[in-house]
Computed example of a mutant assay.
Amino acid sequence: MKTIIFKTASVYLLPLLLLFSIFILLRGHYLPGGGFVGGLMASIAFVIHSFANGIEKTKNIMSIHPGFLMPVGLLLALASGALPLFFGESFMTGLWMENAVPVIGSVGTALFFDTGVYLVVIGVTLTIIFTISEGL
């Protein structure tokens, strides 16, 4: 399904859906959402683009291989869970900065954990989808 309408729409949908996925990620540690849902939204954006324009063009847009996002995300999530151990707290205890960041709000270990989950979900989903699509 590579119609001109779908190709044109996918060019505009990719940045819009990626921006929305980041909004969902940042919203997650206060309200429903977070790394998993935001990662799925980002993956959907790249899948729509690959359906419309081909996998090779989508891989060219992505500066790194999606498989590289998995260990980076896992390391970030593990580091955010282990950080409280250095302050005498138990593993996965939430730590928060005293001052809020203007646009994001309160920044804490929950945001870094969600970001790690976000990267893992994007990496796993796109690796699976790209592997299946290349086999067809």
Rank of each mutant, 00 (worst) to 15 (best):
L74I: 14
A100D: 13
G73N: 05
G81D: 01
L40R: 11
S90C: 05
P102S: 05
L136N: 10
G116T: 03
S80D: 12
G34S: 09
V121G: 03
L75E: 03
L136T: 12
G38Y: 10
V47R: 02
F20V: 09
F51T: 03
G38V: 12
G81Q: 04
F86Q: 10
E98Q: 14
Y12L: 09
V107S: 07
G39C: 12
V37W: 14
G33C: 02
H29L: 11
G88S: 07
Y30M: 15
G28D: 07
G33V: 02
F113W: 12
W96L: 12
V124S: 10
G105A: 10
F68I: 00
T127D: 12
L26G: 03
I4S: 08
M97C: 11
S63K: 13
I61D: 01
L25K: 06
L85W: 11
L40Q: 07
V11P: 02
F86H: 00
F51A: 07
G67W: 06
I61M: 04
V101R: 01
I4K: 08
H65G: 14
L78K: 05
L13G: 03
L69G: 04
A110T: 14
S21I: 03
K2V: 02
I4C: 01
I48H: 05
E89L: 12
I55P: 02
G54V: 01
L83N: 04
G105S: 09
K59R: 11
E98S: 12
L19Y: 06
E98H: 14
E98C: 08
T3Q: 00
L76W: 06
L69R: 10
T125G: 13
Y30E: 15
R27L: 07
I5C: 04
L19S: 15
I61F: 15
L19I: 06
I132D: 13
P84S: 08
T127I: 03
N60S: 05
S21W: 06
L40P: 11
P66E: 02
L95V: 10
S10M: 03
G33S: 08
G108N: 03
M97W: 13
Y30V: 15
S106N: 13
M41N: 14
L17I: 00
T109M: 08
E89Y: 13
G108A: 06
F36H: 00
G54C: 07
A77Y: 13
F6C: 02
G73H: 11
I61P: 00
P71S: 00
P71Y: 07
G39K: 14
S50V: 10
T127L: 13
I104R: 07
A9E: 04
L31V: 10
S43K: 11
G123C: 09
S90Y: 09
L75K: 04
V101D: 07
V47S: 06
F130S: 11
F20D: 05
N99I: 12
I48A: 09
V37F: 14
F112N: 11
V37Y: 12
G34N: 08
T115M: 15
F36M: 13
G81C: 03
L19H: 08
K7I: 01
V103R: 04
